[in-house]
């Protein structure tokens, strides 16, 4: 079955970011397909490569990147929510005159239409949030 995942909370503050990851991983382990993982609201903070948790803590961002690489996941960060919260890729940084970008490997920035498409194309859309 084809799933889409919506992540609405940032890492380390709300468990939703962990639950979403564990759910996605379990779905893949069961042989399901993940059409897209869409990050919205503070969820966009799951996509910054500048995250540096203590060594004895999980690295939530890196976990997504690695799962993404392994399963060729489409990890999409909402552009409007990302701009508000200071998440940018090289193009976005340049366009908005910023001195750096911070998007983590495996993530891409795109519009809200990607969320609607994720709802249309997948058999199930599951939301994780506060």
């Amino acid at each position: 079955m084809k799933f889409s995942i919506l992540v609405n909370e940032g890492p380390y503050t709300h468990e939703a970011a962990d639950t979403a990851y564990q759910f996605t991983k379990a779905a893949l382990d069961k042989g399901h397909e993940i059409f897209r993982v869409f990050f919205y609201h503070d969820g966009v903070n799951n996509g910054t490569r500048l995250t540096t948790p203590p060594q004895d803590d999980r690295n939530i961002v890196k976990r997504w990147t690695e799962l993404g690489e392994k399963h060729k996941l489409d990890l999409v960060v909402c552009v409007a929510a990302a701009q508000r919260r200071g998440i940018a890729d090289a193009d976005e940084a340049k366009r908005n005159g910023k001195d750096a970008d911070n998007i983590a490997p495996g993530f891409r920035i795109s519009g809200l239409g990607q969320l609607i498409e994720a709802g249309i194309q997948a058999d199930r859309l599951v939301t994780f949030g506060d």
């Binding site: 609201h41 409007a80 809200l112 609607i116």
Partner: peptide, 20 residues
């Protein structure tokens, strides 16, 4: 109090273009 209402309205507006 939180941003959810505003940002969900943004989804509705963008989503309207998809003729669902």
């Amino acid at each position: 109090g939180t941003v959810y209402a505003q940002e969900s309205l943004e989804v509705v507006l963008i989503g309207a273009a998809f003729e669902q």
